[in-house]
Design a protein around this nucleic acid. Sequence first.
DNA 1: CACCCATTGTGTACGATGTCCACATTCGGA
DNA 2: TCCGAATGTGGACATCGTACACAATGGGTG
Lengths: 214, 214
Amino acid sequence: MTAAENNKPKRDTYRHGDLRNALIEAGLELARQGGPAAVVLRAATRQAGVAPNAAYRHFTDRNALLHAVSQAAMAHLARTMEAEQAALPPATDATAAARDRFRAVGTGYLRFAQEEPGLFRTAFHVPDDMAHAAADTAAGTTGKTPFELLGAALDGLVEAGILPEDRRPGAEFLAWSAVHGLAALLIDGPLRGLHPTQAHDAGRHVIDMIERGI
Amino acid sequence: MTAAENNKPKRDTYRHGDLRNALIEAGLELARQGGPAAVVLRAATRQAGVAPNAAYRHFTDRNALLHAVSQAAMAHLARTMEAEQAALPPATDATAAARDRFRAVGTGYLRFAQEEPGLFRTAFHVPDDMAHAAADTAAGTTGKTPFELLGAALDGLVEAGILPEDRRPGAEFLAWSAVHGLAALLIDGPLRGLHPTQAHDAGRHVIDMIERGI
DNA sequence: CACCCATTGTGTACGATGTCCACATTCGGA
DNA sequence: TCCGAATGTGGACATCGTACACAATGGGTG
């Protein structure tokens, strides 16, 4: 290399064409490696081969960009959960099927947390300014957000007669709490660095607890 | 005021005398208001009435300072949990007492998360560089870390015959997961802004689930 | 087809931050 | 008493987020 080392996709057109998505994509890569703090506006624009200020034509703020990246990460999570369910072997009966689908929600959640800790933290990052409404565009390929996937699985448990109807209300908060808490333990807390096999076992235990205690 | 508005404790001695603690204290206040991201080195030194670089005589890094603040926040959490147990009304029998003490661990944890969300997030903040060993100096007045407090309460359940001994191993991870997950839901997630009374109810439900499912 | 203006990028600049280096001040022990 | 180890200061630099003025572009209207 002489002086200019351009591995960046330098464009010849003045307009980028798809800058908004390019920035989100670059942000996702940064987040994957370093979590929410690594989503640096200038770095994203650099990756997109564009001046820093160009980002402001598509996001009001660094926070707005980070939020978009966060939503994209949440969508990744949803897809992982959907994939976990899709990979399920056929169950013996409808009851077992409902149960399997429920457990797959938790298993997929935990798998994503371990395989993509940076994206996971980014998905649940709370913006400094606070006050963001409910779910924006965090759905997977089925159009459901992670939370909605959990709700659907719980509904399945009720239909299958596994979960009494009077225990259904608010059940997603119980289940989500336990699984999310374990995820935090696994990627940041004292269970960090656990062997994947053991982590999987821990996941089984927590989901067992949920089934018993829900 | 004319030109110099010094509400800062300007000192006359060249040495500060207790800068390390002053910085941690300032950091705690910053964290209380804005979480880990708000722990800004220069702001802390400003508050301590000292030049930015003075901090480097006591912390190698901004990360080191943040870590110290995090440990201090964890100690706060421990004290809140201890206080929750101390405030317990006398139980009717030993079994009820063990149970009450166990539940107080979770209740205190959740109370701290809601009353001091900034400190709570800071306590569980994972440093960007990663690789920090186990618990440093995060103990409360009894000398126990939050995790150890939970372990002691679980031991109490076993002694009281409430929890079968073969279920004891790893039980702290189940309990901690569920409670921590709820805390995350309450301060960052979809349960944010819940009325304290409702939040307390949610806490009861989660702890019920733990008792049933552990 | 020509023109105009909304959209999209660029360049320059500013304040704030973390951190490095050289220097100043002080205190405690030899 | 004096000197070296602690401790604090000052200045400098790269990087970041972002504001402001300006340039290039392209699509709709005449």
